[in-house]
Amino acid sequence: MNPIPELTAFLKQLRLSGILDSLDLRNRQAIEGKLAYTEFLSILIGDEVARRDQKKVAMRLRRANFRGEKTIEAFDFDRLPNLNRSLIQDLATGRYLSEKVAILIAGPCGTGKSHLAQALGHCAVRQGHDVVFTMQTQLVGSLHAARAIGSFERRFQQLARVPLLVIDDFGLKPLRPPHDEDFHDLVAERYERASTIVTSNLDYDEWGDAFPANRMLGAATLDRLRHGAYRVVLDGESYRAPKPSPDSTRAPARSPAAAKAR
């Protein structure tokens, strides 16, 4: 008697149908290895746990809205010799998440700020945390749109409660009312409750320029972000530098007059 059809129905009823993907393989391994029933069952359950973990990671990555596969393994540390690699590796462990502090990343365009921020976000996802990645303009824009349709509080709380919020390109565009107030309220709500990663092209002492309409509000916002925060400065050449023209290596052409003179 073949027990597979009945077993399949039971597994589906228990929402364990993923076991079917490896059942045949594990059954052959159990027979060939003469495994005890408990060993066979442990391997099958282990497969199901791993499958569910992978599914959770994939779901968190989709919700995070990262822009491509920007991982810590793919980050080019050699291009930034002055970067404190030990600090980055320590941050990748996610210790700052339990500390509920921010990571502030500053540096010129093209030095890898967005990559590093998303890479740390990827690490957090793999460690079981929910993450949201957004640009400053998208962040305040989404809150503005939510206010227009009466769902501001819901959207605000979603952003306030996520364990890790990554805000890219802070200060690229100035924050004006009511966006500056929304940004401040979000930072204040997350203060000492959840971690935030912020990247900016501005030097740290220029971050206040992002609040041209209300410097006092900006000071209060940045005071909360900076408290206990880890600061990372990326200083190097832009990886977006244009490639040299194919003709740039050729010897310069002689003028007709010079050629005639020869």
Rank of each mutant, 00 (worst) to 15 (best):
residue 110 G to Q: 05
residue 187 V to F: 01
residue 67 R to T: 14
residue 213 A to G: 09
residue 168 D to E: 08
residue 121 G to T: 03
residue 109 C to G: 11
residue 130 D to Y: 08
residue 144 H to F: 11
residue 244 P to E: 10
residue 104 L to V: 14
residue 64 A to E: 06
residue 31 I to F: 12
residue 59 M to C: 07
residue 133 F to T: 04
residue 220 A to Y: 04
residue 51 R to M: 09
residue 202 L to S: 01
residue 90 D to R: 15
residue 211 F to E: 01
residue 118 Q to V: 01
residue 226 R to N: 10
residue 13 Q to L: 12
residue 69 E to K: 14
residue 65 N to I: 04
residue 157 Q to A: 11
residue 74 A to C: 08
residue 183 F to M: 13
residue 33 G to F: 07
residue 167 I to R: 00
residue 101 V to R: 15
residue 248 S to G: 02
residue 35 L to R: 10
residue 23 L to V: 06
residue 182 D to C: 05
residue 151 S to I: 10
residue 248 S to K: 06
residue 70 K to G: 02
residue 165 L to M: 10
residue 238 S to D: 10
residue 147 R to E: 15
residue 159 L to R: 00
residue 217 L to W: 04
residue 88 I to Q: 05
residue 31 I to P: 01
residue 130 D to C: 07
residue 230 Y to F: 12
residue 224 R to S: 07
residue 247 D to H: 08
residue 204 Y to M: 15
residue 17 S to H: 13
residue 231 R to G: 09
residue 213 A to P: 04
residue 200 S to D: 04
residue 210 A to Y: 00
residue 98 S to G: 11
residue 186 L to M: 05
residue 180 D to I: 00
residue 167 I to P: 00
residue 187 V to Y: 02
residue 251 A to F: 12
residue 231 R to L: 14
residue 235 D to E: 14
residue 142 S to L: 07
residue 122 H to E: 11
residue 57 V to F: 02
residue 228 G to K: 05
residue 179 H to Q: 15
residue 27 N to F: 15
residue 216 M to S: 13
residue 75 F to S: 00
residue 119 A to T: 03
residue 23 L to G: 02
residue 243 K to M: 13
residue 246 P to N: 03
residue 96 Y to K: 03
residue 35 L to P: 03
residue 107 G to Y: 01
residue 173 K to F: 09
residue 93 T to G: 05
